[in-house]
């Protein structure tokens, strides 16, 4: 018997980040279509859908990549929105900087709210995060969002409410839609980059099994914190953009049930593909609008979401985005230019 042959040949695989360019291209095409065809009502619906899509991508990271259920993501949009309005009214900082700061604050809050995940999983984590969303609902409906007033809470009286100024480059609503699409594109790309790089590998190990991850040297604490921080950051940026869209936010719009819907729709839309987040944003914003168009009670949306969630869990665990992705793969195969080729392992002797 011969011992196994040992080779020094290096394994060269197709570039790890070769699919990243798809995100800006798809986003550009969709944004241009929307900008040129949508009426004012749909422009504003799509703008908030984009903002929410960013937060949904955060759920994609937490649930799709780590397997952690977090039911307070919509509340983190609120945290970002609050920070944005507070900074926008209270400081002279540029809009973009405020967006980033809103992301950072929501990231910090997201890490604190995610802390139970260091001990809890599954149903227990879901319940704890839902309670946090509930606590946020209580606080924000009492304090409301800053609207140009004095004091730490920044509340004005009802007559003197101020709107948040939009950025200079995006004063009208069509331009603001494009502006939000640019942020969303960056957010999606950052998430995809993390998925393909070292954190993504560590997250995949954690999703598989905590012990297997630890025996691969993964520091669970560090990589869970990175995920919660990033998911919170995306939600915060989304909240900031949402605040800029309307110019103000309504404390009553941040009920815990919104976080629940956002999670359910993220699963329905698909947490394993970046465009699943886009679909989730559309479902959460466009479905109620459509129902209103057809003069159906808004609560019917809940029934729709529940049914869609059941469908997703039972027949399509990878969600709508997963079905689209499967379709694209099949079309590519039909066209006979399937990439990467099955024999992608080129070997170069060195």
């Amino acid at each position: 018997m011969t011992p196994p042959k040992i080779s020094d040949a290096l394994i060269i695989l197709p570039g790890r980040y070769r699919t990243l360019w798809e995100i800006p291209v798809v986003m550009l095409i969709l944004t241009l279509i929307a900008a040129f065809t949508a009426n004012a009502y749909w422009i504003s619906t799509l703008t908030s859908a984009l903002a929410i899509a960013l937060a949904a991508r955060g759920i994609g990271v937490l649930y799709g990549l780590l397997g952690l259920v977090s039911l307070c993501q919509f509340a983190l949009i609120g945290v970002g929105g609050w920070t944005m309005l507070r900074l926008g009214h209270g400081t002279g900082l540029p809009f973009e900087l405020n967006v980033l700061l809103a992301g950072v604050v929501a990231a910090a809050v997201g890490v604190v709210w995610g802390a139970p995940a260091l001990k809890l999983k599954g149903l227990y984590l879901a319940l704890v995060t839902l309670m946090l969303a509930g606590a946020y609902q209580v606080v924000i409906s009492a304090t409301g969002f800053p609207d140009g007033g004095q004091g730490w809470l920044g509340r004005a009286d009802a007559i003197q409410r101020l709107m948040l100024e939009r950025p200079v480059v995006a004063q009208n609503s069509t331009r603001y839609l494009i502006y939000c699409a640019a942020w969303a594109t960056l957010g999606f790309m950052a998430a995809e980059w993390l998925r393909l790089a070292k954190p993504g590998r560590a997250w995949a190990m954690i999703r598989k099994d905590d012990r297997a991850a630890m025996s691969a040297g993964v520091n669970l604490l560090v990589y869970k914190i990175i995920a919660f921080a990033f998911a919170g950051f995306l939600a915060g940026v989304g909240g900031a953009l949402l605040a800029g869209s309307v110019g103000q936010l309504d404390g009553r719009a941040f009920a815990a049930s919104e976080s629940l819907s956002l999670f359910a729709l993220s699963v329905v839309a698909g947490v394993y593909n970046w465009y699943g987040a886009l679909i989730a944003g559309l479902l959460l914003r466009a479905v109620p609008s459509l129902l209103t168009d057809f003069e159906i009670n808004g609560y019917a949306a809940i029934v729709f979401y529940g049914t869609a969630l059941l469908h997703a869990i039972i027949t399509a665990p990878r969600g709508i985005a997963g079905q689209i992705s499967g379709l694209i793969t099949r079309i590519k195969a039909l066209l006979g230019r399937k990439t990467p080729p099955r024999q992608a392992t080129r070997q170069e002797d060195s």
Binding site: I6, S7, I11, L13
Partner: peptide, 14 residues
Amino acid sequence: SKALHFVGLDREAH
């Protein structure tokens, strides 16, 4: 690369 060659999985790397 060396580890995958060693266990005979180099052709499955992708």
